[in-house]
Design a protein around this nucleic acid. Structure first.
Lengths: 198, 198
DNA sequence: ACAAACTACCTATCTATATAGTGAGTGGCA
DNA sequence: TGCCACTCACTATATAGATAGGTAGTTTGT
């Protein structure tokens, strides 16, 4: 059910078309909640049906039209209620850690390659998170900038610091993942090193 | 698809009935891959159908019977292949971080309560992971003990160290989560503290 | 004038996961 | 003898999510 609230969160910054949502999503909310557009469009429809959003048909070019969604008062209300409700705890479900626990079954070369791939993914992801964090700190992040327009300047610091706090958590996790993978590579080298040579 | 491999991983330690699997699962593999029994039973059936497991009907009491599953050669093969294939990367999907990013929408009291709940969950989870890690270190973990029986003593250290490595990763993540929640509580106090008093 | 790339908005299908409930047999103990 | 907790093995239903494809209009570059 969090997708619905991720979309509400994004749409509180400004009204958007489904296409805008799916584009902006990947640069902001998707860092905490990923979703493909095939999930976004139907969910926007359902949210409109449920009264959380209202849409306006906007002309686009000569013949084309597009549908712009805006959060309704009921939508704001639902978002606030969700914000005040207890966090759902996610069950652990991590293929990488599952594999790590049974690495004695892997070919030494494969184990090494997998840990490298994992480390590289998280290194890249970490760089992206840090870059995004920087755009929050200097307030150049486009969605954030639009969001702040609705608020009094006295509130800006508060809003920005919560966003940075969220990214700090993600960055910590990414750093932990990279460090773990690196320790894993050393471990594989130590335990399988001689096997590789033989 | 990882559930299938989590089950194979568990069943390589010894043959088990579906009930055994669902019990032992929660004390070992579930730390890296959670699944309820309503997913386990049907998956065991499908795995038997696909030739990864074979079952023997074992008498139980006077009239009762139970079905014991053992990994087949094809099952071992499939597990090895999975171990040597690239890790699937999980998309970020964390309600806690999603909420954290929009904490300006929450009631100060609610924000505080949610972070406390999150911290407490992870503190408890961390304690459980550390306790489990200790049973791996001293090799008293029942599933591990059964698993080691299939191997030459020269292999034991290697097998145990991979398991510990996996738990170390989980422990790092749990510690990062606790530390992050604690920083969040300080942040909420700082930013909303005056609002609470007024 | 035409192609390519982009905007816009989906649909279809399959599998995974969550949540809840069912029902029969067993072993112990009061 | 009756009850209860536990063992065993599911089923049923609904939603979430992954993956792939489709169609029509628009803008931009050559």
């Amino acid at each position: 059910m969090s997708l619905r609230f991720a979309l509400l969160a994004l749409l509180t910054s400004r009204p958007m078309t489904g296409y805008d949502v799916s584009k902006h999503f990947s640069q902001s909310v998707a860092h905490v909640w990923h979703a493909p557009d095939s999930q976004i469009y139907p969910e926007l429809n359902r949210m409109e049906r449920d009264g959380l959003l209202e849409s306006a048909v906007v002309p686009w070019g000569k013949k084309g039209t597009k549908k712009e969604y805006a959060v309704t008062e009921a939508g704001v209300q639902a978002f606030r209620e969700w914000m005040d409700s207890p966090i759902e705890i996610r069950r652990q479900r991590e293929p990488a850690y599952l594999k790590a626990a049974y690495l004695e079954w892997a070919e030494p070369g494969a184990a090494h390659a997998e840990l490298e791939q994992f480390r590289d993914y998280w290194t890249e992801h970490l760089a992206m998170l840090e870059a995004t964090r920087a755009t929050l700190v200097d307030r150049s992040h486009p969605t954030l900038a639009r969001r702040l327009e609705h608020y009094d300047a006295s509130q800006w610091d508060r809003i920005v610091r919560y966003k940075i706090f969220a990214y700090d958590g993600l960055i910590d996790q990414a750093r932990a993942a990279v460090a773990w993978a690196e320790r894993g590579l050393l471990l594989v080298d130590e335990l399988e090193g001689s096997t590789v040579e033989s």
